[in-house]
Design a protein around this nucleic acid. Structure first.
Lengths: 208, 208
DNA sequence: TAATTCTGAGACATCCACGTCTCACATGAA
DNA sequence: TTCATGTGAGACGTGGATGTCTCAGAATTA
């Protein structure tokens, strides 16, 4: 069913994010293809998980791009980043689990690059007076990424509704990160403007 | 050096939390013992990681106990829980990564039990009017545990000072979880009373 | 229909981590 | 010193996942 490389990779994430030692049989079955075809697409297990990591990093980099994290108000940029990264929360969950797994150079470089962009966003926000300075930018970066990963896990396990993901993440994180906590708005910019529907954050685990 | 079972397990966590597929050679070397001794202590890899999971769950359960999460004000209980669980943040990081790994019954039961206690804490806090009701208790539980895990990873990688861990976690999480956000106090109850020193949160990675 | 391409299923061979064993040596007690 | 216990180092066999191959059948196209 899933002849697309990226489709197979997303199916692999659904398995590997929870069981990093899953057999290739299992991954192939989750993708709806045979082990032979999996091998035709990716020459070996190492190549597969490397490409999974690369896909996650590409998606997160794209989210940083589309959110425009280096422009404008830091709070608004973070809100945009939430909406842009929540659909790929599952990939981020995988990255959070094995970011230090790779001794590969290009992956680590790409990873450090994105983390640096996050770090710069929080640093800028602190200089703008939007984010609290008692919490280090490094900690804010780590916490944000971990919460994105938590969103991915929660959605996969059915503990969090995909439509609530962006709202839950934004409110919880910004409540703790903002210097002057905005009054807990009952219904902020989540379900309103809908520049991008957040309902397409699907684990895509088994949809044959 | 580390003949103690728990010492070996803690050393194993430092490796397994980042690389779940680490060889037994690597784990033994991290613990400062030989592979033969590791085998004498734990009969096989499966038994090892099972005991690592059990240790983490026991520690987290003990943290819930010493914090007394089922008593008194929910906010105060959560603050106590932070201080009690931060020293074992590395174990929690391991659990966060592979909580669904086990098809073992007793581990899953113990896991569900602790999560239920967390869930009850947040539910009680919401009923008390302390925690926000726009964020589900399930999400608050997941987010809290993920942030504890993030603390463990950050400390292990040297990105977060162990002495700042409890403060960073408390401020970030409570800022987003409290219904009436307390004014961002510059130095709250973290470094003051010191019921338990938070500086003993050491990854214990390689101390030969 | 006929040809081509792609996939699934299965059968191998290979390799590596794991489990087990033995032996030498260090440490501590008698 | 002598004995006992425990550890480290290494060798060895095994099992299972992985990698590669072939072939039959389905899907697509001419």
């Amino acid at each position: 069913m899933a002849t697309d490389r990226d489709t197979v990779l997303e199916a692999a994430v659904g398995v590997l994010s929870r069981r990093p030692t899953a057999h290739l049989d299992e991954i192939a079955r989750a993708a709806g293809i045979s082990r032979a075809t999996l091998h035709r697409l990716f020459p070996g297990r190492e190549a597969l998980i490397r490409e999974v990591g690369l896909l996650g990093l590409r998606r997160f980099a794209a989210a940083l791009d589309t959110a425009g994290v280096e422009e404008g108000d830091a709070e608004a940029a973070l809100r945009r980043l939430v909406h842009a990264s929540v659909p790929d929360a599952m990939l981020c969950a995988f990255l959070a689990g094995e970011n230090q797994l790779y001794e590969n150079d290009d992956i680590n470089d790409l990873w450090e690059l994105q983390i640096a962009r996050l770090h710069a966003l929080f640093l800028r926000g602190q200089q703008q007076g939007v984010f609290r300075i008692e919490l280090s930018a490094a900690w804010l970066s780590e916490a944000f990424f971990d919460l994105v990963a938590g969103v991915g896990w929660s959605i996969q396990d059915g503990r969090l509704a995909p439509r609530d993901a962006a709202f839950s993440l934004t409110e919880l994180f910004l409540g703790g990160a903002l210097r002057r906590p905005s009054a807990p708005s009952p219904a902020p910019t989540t379900h309103s403007t809908s520049d991008r529907s957040t309902s397409d954050c699907r684990p895509d685990t088994d949809t044959p």
